[in-house]
Amino acid sequence: MAASRPAKVTAAAPAAAAVPLLSIVGLSAWYGELRAIWDVSLDIHAGDVLAIIGANGAGKSTLLKSITGLMNRGAAAHTRGRVELGGRRLDALDTGQIVDAGVTLVPEGRRLFARMSVEDNLLAGAFLPRVRPLAQRRLAEMYRLFPKLAERRLQVVSQMSGGEQQMVAIARALMSQPRLVLFDELSLGLAPAVVDDIYRKVAEIHAQGTTCVIVEQDMKRALAVANRVCVMLEGAIVLEGTPATLSEAQITAAYFGTER
């Protein structure tokens, strides 16, 4: 990777003084010796829908994994930098503690527990002691949000369509009552009609007060739902702003790393 990183361009004025929900300062991440993220700093405010866009290998997924502690794997992967949720340091915690604190991830490729039923997958999401007493209530709420899952609650998830599986993955993550949900490659591999459906659900989840970060390759989709956008290139955030203030040409240039 290049030694010097592209400088970040911030198109919008920094958000008004409010304390961010999640604050990332100087975050870097490595897979073994390979550095995948370079000094990323980013604030996410309560109520945001932040879209992170960028090409394959730009570091989007690694950023989400770093936030949720999945990059703390000794020699195999590690991070450096600060991540705070409402002032509380997350970067020293393990994944379970981070999820308990209120940040969760809907992983790329859904990664459901393939041999389990819909309901068992959702209940697995209610494993934390804080959530267990609420499990049945959360389950009912998830079935209200995704009525299709209620019909199929006993079906083994590996027999379901991609869209249905994505719904299970989202519902499973929501079981823990997160304040911030990170969606990794939300629309990847899904038919356009299904993606519309999934994005409607995300809008509903957001309307219920959950802050959302969406990693997405489909730029138009992301811009349609987000109130903030950042573009990643080669492991760094190269452009940040709001869909209203950034032109499509600007975003495209940042996405491909071409001259403006």
């Binding site: 994944t95 999820v99 527990f113 389990m116 697995a124 494993f127 934390l128 823990s176």
Partner: peptide, 14 residues
Amino acid sequence: RAAADDPEVAALMG
């Protein structure tokens, strides 16, 4: 069962 299937995602469940 979850940890058997996918330890990384099991960690995400706490």
